[in-house]
């Protein structure tokens, strides 16, 4: 079944996120005052309230906190996961790769910015890494 990835209205909060993906990076704000990384992107630090934020690039490593396999009506399926980024924040992503179905809580995953427009997918780290979705 064809997947539909909705398009986004890019505003002052989200434009740097989408622009970085266009260049193959996952970027997020980091607080200049307390060092906290923020995802989703916001205009103020949720730890200290500072407005002094700088966009930085994530290392692209994460750990699976939970996941679900979405079953489509035509029999297709795909894996959605909550992952904890190495920088701290948690985000929702799609796990791709031939072995995506082997995902487990606690699994290590690596960023793969792909698609049109590009999105921050992840793949299971390890032997199968780099195979096509």
């Amino acid at each position: 079944m064809t997947r539909v990835y909705p398009s986004a209205y890019e505003d002052a909060d989200s434009q740097p996120f989408w622009a970085a993906l266009g260049e193959g990076r996952l970027d997020m704000p980091r607080c200049d005052d307390c060092g906290r990384h923020l995802f989703y992107p916001r205009a103020v630090c949720t730890a200290c309230g500072s407005e002094r934020l700088t966009w930085v690039t994530a290392r692209g490593r994460a750990t699976v906190h939970s996941f679900t396999t979405i079953h489509q009506r035509d029999g297709g399926s795909y894996v959605i996961a909550l992952v904890d980024l190495a920088e701290g924040p948690r985000m929702i992503t799609e796990i791709i790769g031939e072995n995506a179905g082997e995902v487990a809580i606690g699994a290590e995953v690596v960023l793969d910015v792909t698609g049109d427009p590009p999105r921050p997918f992840f793949r299971l780290a390890g032997p199968a890494q780099g195979r096509d979705a």
Binding site: Y5, A8, Y9, S14, F17, Y40, I70, I80, I92, E94
Partner: peptide, 9 residues
């Protein structure tokens, strides 16, 4: 948008 961008229900 950071959740809905995947098109999941």
């Amino acid at each position: 948008q950071y959740e809905r961008m995947w098109g999941a229900p």
